[in-house]
Amino acid sequence: MIPEPVFEAPWHAQVFALTVHLNEAGVFAWPDWAARLGATLKTHGLSKDLNGGDDYFAAWLETLEAYLAELGAASPDKVSEAHAAWKAAYLATPHGQPVTLD
């Protein structure tokens, strides 16, 4: 039997690791995180039955963004800026070359 992948998509693994790391770095406590994630899942789950993959991690990411904004660790403006910078970097980098921010 081929074991199923632990994470369905690389970004699921990334956002998971980022959250665990922030918790360990003391940025927030895990029960506080879990309560917030639970609340987001509940809200998202009102309109449809969430799957445990993309839907679940979409709620996870939204929760993390909101929590970091609230804590002043990453403001929505800065996040949008960095998001746009990464997008531009991918579009400007020829295929096969590492994508980096200047």
Binding site: Q14, A82, K87
Partner: peptide, 22 residues
Amino acid sequence: AHPHSLLPSDPALRVKALETIL
């Protein structure tokens, strides 16, 4: 002129954005 790198999904870019800032 040259195909660019495959653009990651929107959530993947949002995670990268958080990583960059943090």
